[in-house]
């Protein structure tokens, strides 16, 4: 399968990228690692006329400490996150989730920014970042905005990023190296999440249980008011709207959400 024709527009600064997006409008897409976008283009489910290639913007690379948070450049690959000592120290749940993205080849090439900007509710990193209270830095023509995870995911494959925004950084507040768990249920070892759950501190976030990563509010409230894990987990599917597909029915996803929340709470507690 072959992508439709497009023009490759390499840029070397964030400003160039932003200008290019502005210039080409809806016909332009950002290209980072390409591991969400190129498969869609090959299937011709995406046919952008211009690909603004940001892979050579060096400012978008790397992971650094900044007071009480980690700043992760949007072009950082899953493999770099998985093997980063800083991530391991300050945001271990993100490393654990990154390790479960795709396969080694995909992790070598796919980026955290691309994965998040794709807006997939089953994205391991999106669910884990939501759990870790991450925020997302969008740089547009009018400067930078910091968008919290709650405000970032809007709907099916839709995020708060505007057409001319470049997702430049992800901010991850230092999280405890204890009391976290990332659970992912797959049919095969390497597969899309049927359901995933991130527990980090008091956050319980569900993946693939609706159009976007969802907060399991009822579970969080139950835990806050002293319920045991089994009781709390029994609320896991409340307010969710999972779909039925070749991998699982909505009913089974609802069941798995309860199982995975229980397992995640149990594992998180074991760590603390």
């Amino acid at each position: 399968m072959i992508p439709a024709l497009f023009t490759h527009v390499p840029v070397t600064t964030i400003k160039e990228a932003s200008d290019a997006l502005n210039h080409y409008g809806d016909d332009a897409k950002l290209l980072a690692g390409g591991h969400s976008l190129i498969p869609l283009m090959k299937l011709r489910l995406a046919t952008p006329g211009y690909l603004i290639d940001i892979a050579r913007i060096n400012d978008l690379r790397g992971i650094r400490e900044d007071k009480d948070k980690l700043v992760v450049g949007a072009l950082t690959t899953h493999e770099q996150i998985e093997n980063s000592p800083l991530i391991r120290k300050y945001a271990p749940i993100i490393g654990a989730a990154a390790k479960l993205v795709g396969d080694p080849q995909v992790r070598n090439r796919g980026t955290i920014g691309g994965s998040v900007a794709h807006g997939d509710a089953a994205s391991d990193l999106s669910v884990a970042l939501f759990g870790a209270n991450a925020s997302f830095v969008a740089t547009g023509p009018n400067g930078k905005r910091v968008i919290s995870a709650v405000d970032f995911f809007l709907g099916f494959w839709t995020t708060a990023l505007n057409q001319d925004d470049v997702l430049t950084e992800i901010h991850i507040p230092y999280a405890p190296s204890t009391n976290w768990s990332y659970q992912k249920f797959t049919i095969r070892s390497q597969d899309w999440a049927v359901v995933s759950v991130a527990v980090s501190g008091s956050n319980i976030i569900l993946g693939a249980m609706g159009e976007i990563p969802l907060r399991a509010e009822k579970c969080e409230q139950a835990i806050a008011s002293g319920a045991d894990f089994e009781q709390a987990a029994s609320f896991a599917d409340e307010g969710t709207s999972p779909s039925s597909d070749i991998r699982a029915s909505a009913d089974y996803r609802r069941h798995l959400a309860k199982v995975l929340v229980f397992d995640a709470l149990t594992e998180a507690k074991k760590r603390s």
């Binding site: 299937l43 049919i187 095969r188 070892s189 390497q190 899309w192 070749i246 991998r247």
Partner: peptide, 28 residues
Amino acid sequence: YEQVCYDPSTGQPITANLIDYLIPSAPD
């Protein structure tokens, strides 16, 4: 793991690529 599925109402194939047709790999 494996099964070729069709939408029973339209006859459309719904396992027509290796994302949805589940071939096991080494860890499976």
